[in-house]
Amino acid sequence: MSDTDLELASRRAIYQRVAAEPGIHFRALLADLDYAQGTLQYHLRWLADESLIEESDDGKYTRYYPAAEFDEDDQTVMNALRRKYSRRVLAHLLTDGPLSTSELADRLDKADSTISWHLSKLADADLVTKERDGRRVVYEVTDPDRVATLYTVHRGSFTDRIVDRLLGLWDSY
């Protein structure tokens, strides 16, 4: 990246926000920064065209990452970690897994159907696997080291004290 790439204060502020909170989505950027929607769209497109940021579609949001810092698998994990209940499901599976939908629903105080939806999205992204254990189906994190590392490195950009307590054992990770 050359010095002139980020010479505009607005463009630099957007890039710095994306770098500080990898996986941030458009609406969060719009809420955090004092720019008109069109201005933000223009600068994000310019940053992407100049290969300074990358876009990742998580099915609901387009999320933004500093270019070349996150491979596709990392972006998939970060997309899930940016969703509150997916992050909590992953935290429980990492600390106490494998767990069933009902066990996760009890721990998260959510309906089985809600947890099932999040598990389905996580399974579609190859972040969890499911296996039959007798009469129940249990879920487990596919790559716990990757999830734990990305959570630990970027945990300051997540605002979830519950997960911080669950994963507090990784302070020295």
Rank of each mutant, 00 (worst) to 15 (best):
Q16D: 15
Q16R: 15
V18A: 01
A19E: 15
A20Q: 11
E21N: 05
E21I: 13
P22G: 04
G23Y: 04
G23K: 00
I24T: 04
I24K: 01
H25F: 12
F26D: 06
F26G: 01
L29H: 04
A31I: 02
A31G: 07
D32N: 10
D32T: 06
D34H: 11
Y35P: 07
A36E: 13
Q37P: 09
G38C: 09
L40N: 05
Q41R: 15
Y42E: 03
H43T: 00
R45A: 11
R45W: 02
W46F: 07
L47W: 03
L47C: 08
A48T: 13
D49F: 10
S51H: 15
S51E: 13
L52T: 04
L52Q: 14
E55R: 14
E55G: 02
S56A: 14
D57T: 11
G59R: 07
Y61H: 14
Y61D: 09
T62L: 15
T62K: 15
P66T: 04
E69L: 11
F70K: 02
D71C: 11
E72F: 04
D73M: 09
D73L: 10
D73Q: 13
Q75P: 01
Q75Y: 01
T76M: 11
M78Q: 03
N79G: 08
A80N: 04
L81G: 00
R82E: 00
K84C: 05
S86M: 13
S86K: 06
R87F: 03
R87K: 03
R87W: 04
V89E: 00
A91M: 00
H92C: 04
H92L: 08
L94N: 04
T95C: 08
G97H: 05
P98S: 04
S100V: 05
S100I: 06
S100K: 06
T101D: 11
T101C: 15
S102Y: 08
E103W: 02
A105Y: 08
R107S: 08
L108F: 07
L108R: 05
L108N: 07
D109E: 14
K110Q: 12
D112C: 03
D112E: 14
D112Q: 11
S113C: 12
T114Q: 09
I115G: 00
S116Q: 15
S116T: 11
S116G: 14
H118R: 11
H118V: 03
L119M: 13
S120E: 10
S120R: 09
S120C: 08
K121F: 02
K121D: 01
A123L: 04
D124C: 03
D124H: 01
A125C: 06
T129H: 08
T129L: 12
T129F: 02
K130C: 06
K130Q: 12
R136K: 15
R136A: 15
R136L: 14
V138C: 06
Y139K: 03
E140I: 00
V141F: 05
T142A: 10
T142P: 00
D145G: 08
V147L: 06
A148M: 06
A148E: 09
A148V: 01
T149N: 07
